[in-house]
Write a protein that binds this DNA or RNA. Structure first.
Length: 558
RNA sequence: GCGCCCGUAGCUCAGUGGAUGAGAGCAACGGACUUCGGAUCCGUAGGUCGGGGGUUCGAAUCCCUCCGGGCGCCCCA
């Protein structure tokens, strides 16, 4: 709010400087930050220092020129040059009070913006092969992709959440899965059976087999041939069960997809073949050793890649090329791919392949998340079913709860390996950061209940006399609320939902500090009580908004 | 061997070009309500930001190099 006003006047001043020749035109971006000490002002700008070299002037000189031409702005009380050339702004004390009032009036809208201006972004995440239950390894992309989607929506993008099902006829793994399920079904039906050498030998395959026998006619299942076509048909039948399971697990975490896109569609609708023809016309493919190769080397890849195997089967790269076109055709302006670390190596070839196919490289964006390990008492817990350890994501959620699972998985930067501390996650006490942040919310609810019971009015708090809020801990809390919209925008821009987890911890702590020093309910000072209740209520709103982006609950009591 | 990620307090991690500004949580130690939720708060202690070189007015942050750890390197996905 105040921040965007400041950016406006700075931009204006800079333009004025350029127009009258006081400063040369520079492309440097204007940004604002907080000085290390509130004594040094509410905001500061380093533009003068960043321009210094290009302008060939000293930073302080530049700062002076800018300040001279700063338009009148009601929010700014004064500004001054500090240190090597910072421009520090001291805002009118009312700006913080306005912030609190805005929070109360805007409610769930506070912190949202329209920077995205309705641009359509598709976020594709999880997309684990539909050949088994979700496990810890691919669990991270779920909360991450969902929270990034929340962030993008919060800053005004139109977002679509998509799960890609790798269920095409040429998908080796999918076929193997079908063969494995078929083997188990035949075993259960007392028919001749054989598990493929590279087949899926996990026990869950037997569960799928039992489920399919329950859902379908035994006769039908028994007559499905044991060749490649039969394997594929069987895989499609089993996929239904797997996808149900995956969907339910993700729903436990509050994740719901707008679209479950089946790769099969690309084959059935001929999109793949069309794409191959296109590549031929573009002259970017050639045949060798009976396979069709894409000249990705000419687009920055280390070697050319096969798109159609000698067997005639299409590779993932081929389907990726048809798939991205489908995304764009369905209206996406920008596509974010959230992939696991096992796919990191294929990013360059996919990017090169897309370039070869004529896709604007600016429309795709790849985020690779790093691995998750379970730890207990500092020891890595192997995901071994035989040892009775947690293996699937569902088991983890059942063990520690959805809020804890989400919060933990979101609490680290996506580039960092994540150790999921089971011991800490199970802890239902102050040690567990999730309970810490939720406690702040529950405490606020309790204060508001108590105030109401004692006859204080908790409605229309935006009309309270907020000028009474001047304690350092009150000011600190208000500053925090004022920063919130900018922090959300930053987190969205950087695709960094882990910042939300840190923010929630930070806001909870700032609130608790305020609570410790500022008595809220005081029947001998009802004016002050109302002002503080307004601040408490505003904090509750921002906590809720933050929890909403994180995707965790805001409990009224604990 | 090549590629990607990581290396910051005892532990788990933020911070990724700015100021007298290296921080948080946990662990350790010492404190705080006869009143709103002590699942809380305050204080103390704890660092060659993996090593070295470079760029810069300024580097934990950018570049080079070395060391250490993780992951990946199929006509699998």
């Amino acid at each position: 709010m105040a921040e965007s006003e400041l950016l406006d006047v700075l931009t204006e001043a800079l333009r004025a400087c350029v127009e009258c020749g006081a400063l040369p035109r520079c492309e440097t971006e204007i940004s604002l930050e907080h000085p290390p000490d509130p004594e040094m002002g509410d905001f500061s700008c380093n533009i003068a220092m960043r321009m210094a070299r290009e302008a060939g002037m000293s930073p302080r000189e530049i700062a002076a020129e800018i300040i001279d031409r700063l338009p009148e702005c009601a929010a700014v009380e004064r500004c001054e040059i500090a240190g090597p050339g910072f421009i520090n702004f001291y805002l009118c004390p009312t700006w913080l009070q306005d912030t609190v009032r805005n929070v109360l009036l805007e409610g769930a809208e506070f912190g949202r913006s329209n920077r995205g201006a309705g641009t359509k972004i598709q976020v594709e995440f999880v997309s684990a092969n539909p050949v088994g239950p979700l496990h810890i390894g691919n669990a991270r992309g779920g909360p991450y992709g969902d929270a990034v989607a929340n962030l993008l929506e919060a800053v005004g993008y139109e977002v679509e959440r998509e799960y890609l099902l790798n269920d095409g006829p040429d998908n080796t793994q999918f076929g193997l899965f079908g063969a494995s399920v078929q083997a188990r079904i035949r075993e259960l039906l007392d028919l001749e059976w054989e598990m493929p050498e590279d087949g899926y030998k996990g026990e869950y395959i037997i569960d799928y087999a039992r489920e399919l026998i329950e859902r379908h006619d035994e006769e039908t299942l028994a007559t499905i041939p044991t060749d490649a076509d039969g394997h594929y048909r069987m895989a499609i039948l089993a996929e239904e069960v797997v996808v149900e399971e995956i969907r339910e697990t993700l729903e436990l975490l509050g994740i719901e997809f707008d679209s479950w896109f089946s790769e099969r569609e690309l084959f059935e609708e001929g999109a793949i073949d069309e794409k191959i023809d296109e590549l031929r016309e573009l002259g970017v493919v050639y045949e060798e050793d009976g396979a069709l190769w894409l000249r990705t080397t000419e687009f920055g890849d280390e070697e050319d890649r096969v798109v159609v195997r000698r067997s005639g089967a299409k590779t993932y790269l081929m389907t990726d090329l048809a798939y991205v076109e489908s995304k764009l055709a369905r209206g996406a302006d920008h596509c974010i791919y959230v992939w696991g670390p096992d796919h990191a190596a294929q990013v360059p070839s996919v990017q090169a392949g897309m370039a070869a196919a004529g896709v604007d490289p600016g429309v795709t964006e790849f985020v690779i998340h790093q691995i998750v390990r379970l730890t207990e008492g500092g020891q890595v817990v192997r995901m071994s079913k035989r040892a009775g350890n947690i293996v699937t994501l569902r088991e983890l959620i059942e063990e520690v709860g959805a809020d804890v699972t989400r919060f933990f998985l979101l609490s680290r930067s996506i580039d960092s390996h994540l150790d999921f501390d089971l011991e800490l996650a199970r802890e239902q006490s102050e040690e567990n950061p999730v309970y810490y942040v939720q406690y702040a919310h529950a405490r606020i609810c309790s204060i508001l209940r108590e105030a109401s019971q004692r006859g204080l009015c908790t409605d229309d708090l935006h009309e309270a006399d907020l000028t009474l809020l001047e304690h350092p801990d009150e000011l600190r809390l208000m500053r925090w609320l004022a920063d919130y919209p900018g922090e959300v925008a930053d987190a969205a821009e950087r695709r960094a939902p882990h910042r939300l987890a840190h923010m929630s911890r930070d806001l909870a702590q700032t609130f608790h500090q305020f609570y410790g020093t500022c008595r809220v309910i005081d029947l001998d000072a009802t004016e002050l009580s109302s002002a503080r209740l307004a601040l408490v209520s505003a904090t509750q709103t921002v906590l809720r908004n933050l929890f909403g982006l994180l995707g965790i609950n805001a409990p009224e009591e604990m």
